[in-house]
């Protein structure tokens, strides 16, 4: 687990240009939305946009460096090396997650600093709740990444298209740009329920409450509980589906995409 986390960190920090490139989308989307809110006088929402930029950095990392990683490993022949070793595939994925989280922190910090310096969003934080919510959101988000990673093994190069398909709709539904659940949500109730299955939705909701409205554990307890459940479900789902896919792959001969 530690070794895989280190590989991720060495890869990210070994290529400074990579960090700069990965900052592009979160910084720009956060700036664009902050400017929009700022220009129409909705300054209360500027903080949401900055927070959205921070979280979209992690979501991008989950999609592009977690979900599609094993598929990429499979195409490169690295997945075979994992499978023929005694290492636990779930441990490798957890290591990948830890490395991904730590590796994305610089992007998240830069987005926060730029947002803070340019727009001075009003923060009235309940820091204990913010910290726990943030930790649980990342845990369940990366657990979702692990689950997607196992599902993407079924796909070939289509996995990248799947990422493209998921990125924007999930960003919109999960409330990265605006509140997508609760009384301010523009979505019908059924859509809000569906959106709540995405950890980012509940995480953003709870982070907004605890970071900008100072609400404590009591106010976000439902979100925290649901996030914890989602993390466990995705983690267990990922471990189960990886085992099942390995069995199926060994049976059907689909572990390698290279034609032999």
């Amino acid at each position: 687990m530690r070794a895989r986390a280190l590989v991720r960190l060495w890869s990210i920090f070994g290529e400074p240009m990579w960090i700069i490139v990965s900052m592009g989308f979160p910084v720009l989307s956060s700036l664009a939305l902050s400017l929009l809110y700022y220009s129409i006088g909705a300054t209360n929402y500027v903080g949401f946009a900055v927070l959205g930029g921070v979280m979209v950095a992690f979501w991008g990392n989950v999609l592009w460096s977690m979900a599609s990683q094993f598929n990429w490993d499979k195409q490169e022949g690295l997945f075979e090396i994992y499978l023929t070793s005694p290492a636990s595939i779930t441990a490798i994925l957890i290591g990948m997650s830890v490395g991904g989280i730590v590796g994305t922190v610089p992007t998240a910090v830069i987005v926060s600093i730029i947002g803070w310096v340019l727009f001075h969003p009003v923060v009235a934080a309940s820091w204990g709740a913010v910290a726990l919510t943030f930790a649980l959101t990342l845990a369940s988000l990366y657990a979702l990444g692990m689950a997607l990673s196992s599902l993407y093994l079924v796909y070939g190069r289509e996995a990248e298209s799947m990422n493209e398909v998921l990125q924007e709709p999930v960003s919109m539904l999960s409330g990265i740009y605006f509140p997508s659940i609760g009384s301010f949500s523009p979505f019908p109730f059924a859509v809000q329920i569906a959106a709540s299955l995405i950890p980012l939705t509940l995480g953003m909701d709870a982070l907004r409450k605890s970071l900008f409205y100072g609400e404590g554990f009591g106010a976000v307890s439902f979100d925290l509980f649901a996030l914890a459940i989602l993390a466990v479900v995705f983690l267990a789902g990922s471990a189960y589906s990886l085992k099942a896919l390995e069995r199926k792959g060994r049976r059907d001969g689909t572990i390698s995409v290279r034609i032999r």
Binding site: V7, W10, S11, G14, E15, W18, E76, G77, L78, E80, I81, T84, S85, P86, R258
Partner: peptide, 17 residues
Amino acid sequence: RVINMASGAEKAGYDFI
């Protein structure tokens, strides 16, 4: 635990490390 394998066609490494 007792084997290993390698293929001449594999890439078998992470490029950026």
